[in-house]
Amino acid sequence: PHYHLHLLVHGSRGGEIHPSLLSLVDQLKRLKNRSVSIEALTDDNPEQIDIGNRSVFLVPLFLLPGSHVCIDVPKIFNRLQEEGQNIKLFPFLGSFKPWLSLIDDLITSQRPFVKPALIHHPISSDTASVFLKSLEKFLNIPLYSWSRWNQDTFKKEKNYLPIPYLLTPN
């Protein structure tokens, strides 16, 4: 049998989850026949996963190795292990090759018409800088943190089309 998927997302205040993520869960259940649950980091009282002794994949739906990936995800992994789940930690989404290929396809489909640039959440650790450099090399388009994007006076001359590197609106 397939692993149960426990998706981990950022969420907004009070543990609320954006409708596009809820629709993702619904489609995984309906179209792919998967057993899925979803948890927001902003939920103070997450429900316990109740799936018997089935194996679980903890899938962090984060795009960059910021503090959520480096600190919060391991904490939640430990909590689920302590609750007795037979659980494996999946790589964070942004480091998973099929996801990067999907983003690359999106960029390629736009490139004949526009010059895309990826606009991301500012992150500052060494790990994050190394990751961003390799991402920029892989996608072969400029990456800007949104604070830098807002300061960059040349962007209009360069005529970039900004692609927000966010799963849901922020």
Binding site: Y3, W99, I103, L106, P164
Partner: peptide, 22 residues
């Protein structure tokens, strides 16, 4: 500007990626 999951090919692509996990 749309966030990624509001773009149809990304949404469908992610359903496929996660749906195909073991």
């Amino acid at each position: 500007l749309k966030s990624l999951l509001e773009i149809d090919i990304i949404h469908r692509g992610l359903v496929n990626i996660l749906g195909n996990l073991p």
